[in-house]
Amino acid sequence: GSVVKEKKEKALIEVRPYVEYYNELKALVSKISSSVNDLEEAIVVLREEEKKASEPFKTDIRILLDFLES
C-alpha cells in the first residue's frame, strides 16, 4: 500500500520536468491508484490508458511508465 503510493508519488515528482500534462497525469495516477492493489496492476492499467491516449499525453504516460518500471 504505502510503498506503492510512495513509488508513484516519487515517480510523479521525477517526471514532472519532462511531461507536458502534469496535472492530467497526476489525476490519472490518482484515479488508477484507487482501483488497483499494487504497482504491477497500476502499470498494466497505465499501459491500457497509453494505448487510448493521443499525443502528447501518450508520451507523458510513457515517460511515467519508464520511471515506474525502472
Rank of each mutant, 00 (worst) to 15 (best):
G1V: 13
G1N: 13
G1K: 08
V3N: 13
V3P: 11
V3D: 14
V4L: 14
K7N: 07
K10D: 07
A11Y: 04
A11V: 09
A11P: 02
L12V: 02
I13A: 14
I13G: 06
V15G: 02
R16H: 12
R16V: 11
R16Y: 15
R16N: 10
P17N: 13
P17G: 14
Y18E: 14
Y18C: 15
V19M: 02
V19K: 01
V19Y: 07
E20A: 06
E20G: 03
E20D: 04
Y21W: 05
Y21Q: 09
Y21N: 15
N23P: 04
N23Q: 14
E24Y: 03
E24I: 04
L25P: 00
K26W: 07
A27D: 14
L28G: 01
L28Q: 01
V29A: 04
V29E: 01
V29L: 09
V29N: 01
V29I: 09
S30V: 12
S30Y: 10
K31R: 11
K31P: 02
I32S: 03
I32R: 02
S33L: 13
S33T: 14
S33G: 07
S34R: 06
S34A: 12
S35A: 13
V36T: 12
V36P: 03
V36Q: 04
V36A: 08
N37D: 11
N37I: 07
N37Y: 07
D38T: 14
D38V: 07
D38P: 04
L39P: 08
L39D: 13
L39Y: 12
E40P: 09
E41D: 07
A42G: 08
A42W: 13
A42C: 14
A42Q: 09
I43P: 00
I43W: 06
I43F: 08
I43V: 09
V44C: 11
V44M: 11
V45A: 14
V45E: 14
V45W: 08
L46Y: 01
L46M: 07
L46D: 00
R47Y: 10
E49R: 02
E50R: 08
K51S: 11
K52P: 00
K52A: 11
A53G: 03
A53E: 07
E55T: 04
P56G: 10
P56K: 05
F57L: 02
F57A: 02
F57W: 07
F57E: 01
F57D: 01
K58R: 10
T59H: 13
T59W: 06
T59Q: 12
T59V: 04
T59M: 04
D60H: 05
D60V: 13
D60A: 11
I61K: 00
I63W: 04
I63T: 08
L64Q: 00
L64M: 05
L64V: 03
L65I: 12
F67M: 05
F67A: 13
F67Y: 14
F67S: 04
L68S: 01
L68P: 00
L68E: 00
L68V: 05
E69S: 11
S70D: 11
S70I: 10
